[in-house]
Design a protein around this nucleic acid. Structure first.
Lengths: 262, 262
DNA sequence: GCAAAAGTGTTCTCTATACACCCATGG
DNA sequence: CCATGGGTGTATAGAGAACACTTTTGC
């Protein structure tokens, strides 16, 4: 296994901050369900959040953007830091079996040597970011450790590595509390959508059904929508209007919070 | 300058995580104003947030509690992590003059050697915590670098070291967004208080005057208060009732958020 | 009695909610 | 013309805002 200045060891051990990492909870919405992008390890039924490390000359927020772009192909989407996980034992949450497998996978990679193994086994503090993306615009790419990168429905997530389940729980908690200040509609829906789409999205977040006609009226009264042509679905019923967001007005309103109760 | 196993250098360099620190925005309320606890450096007109480092075997949240207790004497108060500051240049925000002074102070301390200086000059990622405390219960203590530890009114803060002003701004932003989910009344006021006290507190947060009679009615309707005896101030007017929080009910309501608009 | 602040009442408006009704669409 | 879902109307109850009125306290 030849060592070049570009191999994994030098990329990480020499160029990244030791003991600090990033994990991304990337949220999407499709088929009326909230989904999270997860990675599956090579040859193992072991899932984890997309993550990475911070280069020595790089802002952590930049690093998170870089990681997000590598996994989704997306630039400039909504991305927020939400919590830093730093319990002393978090790297020890893996079982013996998991550790052995991890070792095996790592040693099979090109450019990994003992220096790398020592580096990665230290205590790590990881900062969680969450992103809101339009699933249809993403093209998921696995990283070197994984063979799959897939959207998983939030209500049926697999067991995850280390404390990654906890990280997701915390992300969703933050989401709930900040809901009124987050651009969920604009980030998660395609550019043009129906009021029904938007309602279903809110229902997914609030986990409760909302009254159709009141939702429509209250939303439109906010004055943040542009109405477009009607959308003929081919179904035997009245065609709904398509809407998009009036972005300046949307952002202005977001500052104050977009509150709902219905 | 003798080196013992208990000196500053070994306490920090050998026992703490490198490159990671903690800064605390400790919020109190007194004389109808929000205040933050700040430290003043020895011999210099240079202020900063109380902070510290994480021991190698210690959870970061524990470390924050330890730091808070050292500066205020308080255990078990409301303490929340809110953001991790990790721009690549944040340690380089100090001016040349500040750096020289810092060097001078550090070298004057017992148990500081070159190893320490090298350690402290590396890039640091700092995690911000904010605490809500009852000022009357605190007894502020300076740390080794500082000669004063004082409450400063939020509307007239001094210039702070590095990015500490930015950290405070971010803390207040988080506070504003999470306001309805934070136990501000219970944490910042003394155990017994009047409705007027509570109103003034909310006015300080919301930065807007509220209508007295409506505030009182709406608050009491929440059903989270216990009414006590009247409080005779000695002033020539009707004496107000004292109240305290019904803690179980208060916590239950907090989960859902205590919303205000008045 | 008077001033000041606490406590309670009243009125008006606005919003949330529930549900009724009509409209478009395709079979 | 019927079933289905979209769009609009309406009646009622409750919340919020403004302000009037009464009560308590010390001088």
């Amino acid at each position: 296994m030849s060592q070049t200045p570009n191999d994994l060891t030098s990329q990480l051990v020499d160029n990244c901050l030791p003991g600090n990492s990033i994990d991304c909870v990337i949220l999407g919405y499709d088929e009326q369900q909230l989904k999270i992008l997860l990675l599956k390890w090579k040859h193992e039924d072991m899932w984890c959040l997309p993550g990475g490390f911070i280069r020595k000359d790089e802002d952590m927020n930049q690093a998170a953007q870089r990681i997000l772009e590598m996994r989704t192909g997306l630039k400039s989407v909504f991305l927020n830091q939400f919590y830093t996980f730093a319990s002393a034992k978090r790297s020890k949450l893996n079982t013996e079996v998991q550790l052995t497998r991890m070792d095996h996978i790592l040693k099979g990679l090109h450019g990994v040597d003992d220096r790398f193994i020592d580096w990665i086994k230290e205590r790590f503090i990881t900062t969680g970011y969450f992103a809101l993306v339009d699933i249809r615009k993403t093209s998921p790419h696995p990283d070197v450790l994984s063979e799959k990168c897939e959207w998983k429905t939030i209500s049926s997530l697999p067991e995850l590595m280390m404390d990654h389940n906890e990280i997701i729980v915390k992300a969703l908690e933050h989401l709930r509390i900040q809901l009124n200040y987050l651009p969920i509609g604009m980030s998660l829906l395609p550019q043009k959508f129906t009021m029904r789409d938007l309602q279903k999205l809110y229902e997914a977040f609030l986990n409760t059904p909302l009254e159709r006609s009141n939702f429509q009226r209250k939303m439109l009264k906010l004055g943040i929508f542009v109405r477009h042509e009607k959308h003929l679905t081919g179904a035997a019923n009245k065609a709904p209007y398509l809407y998009s967001f009036d972005i300046p007005k949307y952002n202005e309103l977001l500052e104050k919070g977009i509150g709902f109760a219905y």
